[in-house]
Design a protein around this nucleic acid. Structure first.
Lengths: 149, 149
DNA sequence: TCAATAGTTTAGAACAATTCCAAACTACTT
DNA sequence: AAGTAGTTTGGAATTGTTCTAAACTATTGA
């Protein structure tokens, strides 16, 4: 019985991810389905390519790192992910594509969403002519105190 | 006469840069003096290591890329520069160390200062406990329209 | 003024994240 | 079932940056 419910939920999740991929015109391949589920089943996340790769391997999904990169970029282009750049070296992909901002823990490089509720930036000059604002990004850099640093 | 004035100004600039290096405890070497002048003579700038390197070579200053990196980091640590991260791959160094924000032209990767006058971010939640805010960074991403993209 | 020394510079190797490539593979169409 | 267009892959290539150990130079103090 529990197993049955399990299966139903499984199937439903699968269908949802599949529909999602189809809707953005990406073939639902084994790899993309698996990665989509790692990314989107569960709460919002910030992952690097390497992280997602190890997660996949741990979950016994055979994917190459090249595919991880391809997929992350395709998903980003499709609006399923958003890329966040906070320190050079690594790119984070955020499963939360809604308007929001970030706390950055400088020591660990970890990111945390700031619910955008009520956060406003005021007093900005107009965008230079010939341009439009594609996004406003607010990053609050945090230093952990008490720690070694 | 013009030449004389030229020389005086030269000397003064030199003295200023030299004092600046001394004051942060860096030996005024040939390379550092030259780079400091490329960076700080003239208005505020945003440079990458590569850019500064080619500029130096064009100005007939023989410096290695390693020294460019060393110098940029030392200057940053000394508070003479501020590092800005906007897209992975390259690090920008900003000669404006005052509190301010940036326009980022997505197509070209170019940065432009936003005079911080009046820009305020409101409605932010408190910093997570155990941390202090080291800086708030606002980046306004711009898309150039009319252009190919 | 010179030698000692501590800080700097350098070329080149090493590194890390990412992209590129061309061949093998697979989902979809007919 | 075959064709084809889209995908995946390992490995090589690229890019920006850091490391290393040897050569060099500014500073100090005799």
């Amino acid at each position: 019985m529990a197993a049955y419910i399990q299966t139903v939920m499984e199937t439903r999740r699968y269908a949802r991810v599949l529909a999602r991929l189809r809707s953005v015109g990406l073939r639902p391949t084994r790899q993309r389905l698996a990665l989509a589920r790692l990314l989107f089943d569960g709460g919002n996340r910030h992952v690097t390519a390497e992280q997602l790769h190890s997660e996949a391997l741990e979950a016994n999904i055979r994917v190459s790192l090249a595919t991880i990169y391809n997929t992350l970029h395709q998903f980003t282009r499709a609006g399923l992910l958003r890329e966040v750049v906070v320190d050079h070296g690594r790119a984070y992909f955020d499963t939360n594509t809604k308007e929001h901002h970030h706390f950055l823990f400088e020591d660990s490089g970890r990111l945390q969403d700031i619910p955008s509720k009520g956060v406003t930036v005021t007093g900005l000059p107009a965008a230079p002519s010939g341009t439009t604002v594609s996004r406003i990004e607010v990053i609050i850099r945090l230093r952990e105190h008490g720690s070694s640093q």
